[in-house]
Structures are given as C-alpha cells and as structure tokens.
Design a protein around this nucleic acid. Structure first.
Lengths: 146, 146
DNA sequence: CATCCTGGGTCACTATTGGGAACTGTGGAA
DNA sequence: TTCCACAGTTCCCAATAGTGACCCAGGATG
C-alpha cells in the first residue's frame, strides 16, 4: 500500500489487449481491486437504481429486494468513497439522506447497462445450458451410482 | 420457486429501460441471479484470460494470481454449467483438461472488456476520490474525538 | 519391485463475510 | 410521557470463501 499506486508499468493503452490481462490477473493490480468492488452484487443494483433518480436510504432498501440494512450502508459507503455516489444529508429530524450518482457514476452505469443487456439477451441460452448440464451430470451420477 | 420463473410480466424489451430495473431489483429475478454469477471476482478474470487462448487448469491457477484450487474448480464448474466455458478432458495420465470459451462466452467477454476499459480510464479518478474521502472522514473523526 | 511424481480434482477444516435483530439519537406527534 | 420516524451502528451467528491435506492412475526412476 505504501509504495503501490504505480500505474504506469509497461501496459500502455495502445497495445493489443493481450498484455493487459497479464497485469490485471495479478493480485496487487489496482484495476482488479476496483473491479472486485464495482462488479459486486449490490453495487450493480444500487448504481442501476440511482441512475433513474436520486433515492433516500429507505427507498433504496425497499427497492433492492433482499438487501440488509448493514450491506446497504456498507455498499453506499464504498460507492461514496470511490466517488461514484454522492451522499446528501439534511440536518432535519427525522434525518433525511439522499443518494445520487456522480458524473463518474453515470458513466459507469452505461457500462453496467451493457452487461445487463447481455444478460437479458442470453438468459434463455443460459437457462438451457444449465438444464443440459444438470441432465448430463445427473446421468453420469446415475452411471456411477448404479 | 414453485410458481416463480415468470419472466414475461410487463417488461418487454422495447420499453424505456426505466421499468427494467424495477424487475431486476427483485430477488427472484433471473437476470439478477445470472448477474450475480458472472459479475463475480473470479469469473471475470477467468473469462478474460480464456479469451486469449484455451488454458489448462494449472495454467489458469498460475495466471489468476491468488485463486485457490477449490475456487477455481467451483468457478469453472459454474461457468461450464452456464454454457460460457467448455471443458475438454483427455483420458490420459496424468490428466489433461483444457478450458476454452464458448461462443456465448466470447460475446460476454466483449462486455466485460468494456467494464475493464472503464475501470482503466477511471482508476486515477477513483484513487483521487478515495484519498479525498479518507481525508474528509479523518478530519471528521478528529473533530469528534478531540 | 517399490517409490515418487504429475495434474486435476475432492474433502475436511478454518477465516471471513453477510444477514437479522436490537440499539441509538433527536424532535415532533399522540 | 411514551411513541414514532429515519438512518444508521453494533453484536451475534450462519453461510460462504478460502486453505491444506489427501486421492487417483500410470509412467519414470532407482
């Protein structure tokens, strides 16, 4: 951590994207750490929901079905720390806190949307693949167990 | 589960992507479950590495720095089940197993690459945001503790 | 002949993370 | 006086990720 943050080694943007992955697969790669953060179950959903409009804490909790209070707090803190989400607290009682995407958060949403679109387009294929796989393994299991 | 899996309610592809998120934020949404799977720390890296060329188990383990044998197994199984990765086992001793992306896996790689590109482009901004956030909270902590 | 090695796993165990519920703090309402 | 709203925080426990030892089969080695 102390001497890290070196981001200009070898892999300049222009090269084939071959080498890029060499760097990214290294555990100490900063890109990989950021990816771990944003490619997260809850982060994706929160960013997605905030793109529509800013939301309050309790609204988010209701919209993101299944998230616990703690994880919503943690997720929002991380996103805020990364500069993807802005937190606006009003000193009123009861408290009111609005969360909204920053400009950077908005650009990320574009990319995330692509991922979701891909998922939508392929969900049938994936379901089919899963069914096929399960059937295959069931048969193998049968052969082994018989 | 019994009566779930209803995927044709309301949100047909053509509509504004407003409503889409309403569905996707629901815990029983299939798209959300698939997203959870593919937007996973290890899955991203594995797909990325396999796009270059097919790899053997041990090669993957070496390339994906920090992954454990078990997690690599689990990840590959999931990807295989989802039809994103093809597993080719040769009945030789010692065993040889090659993993490669399926066509669907390749299309997913395109999307993932976009995510990585975004991360590369914004990693400096994120680092800055984190530094700023940490400084801010440090100050607040100081005020509270003094 | 006995032993070891190799590669792709599995199994049993431990460390970390996430979920659930209870608690906090403040001021207005009942 | 007690209760409630909202946005958290804290604590405890269960689930999950991750670790290291072990397994299998046959060919090379001694």
């Amino acid at each position: 951590m102390e001497e890290g943050t070196s981001q200009e080694p070898g892999y300049c943007e222009g090269t084939e994207d071959f080498d890029v992955w060499q760097w990214h697969s290294r555990a100490d790669c900063e890109v990989r750490q950021i990816l771990d953060r944003i490619a997260d179950k809850w982060s994706l959903l929160v960013i997605a929901l905030l793109e529509r409009r800013s939301l309050r804490f309790s609204e988010l909790r209701k919209e993101v079905e299944g998230i616990s209070q703690r994880m919503l707090t943690v997720t929002l803190r991380q996103l805020e720390r990364d500069g993807l989400v802005k937190r606006k607290a009003y000193p009123v009682v009861p408290p009111r806190v609005d969360y909204e995407l920053t400009d950077m958060g908005c650009t990320l949403h574009e990319t995330i949307k692509a991922l979701v679109t891909w998922t939508e387009e392929h969900q049938t294929a994936i379901a089919a693949a899963r069914a096929a796989y399960d059937e295959r393994t069931a048969k193998e299991r049968e052969l082994l167990g018989q």
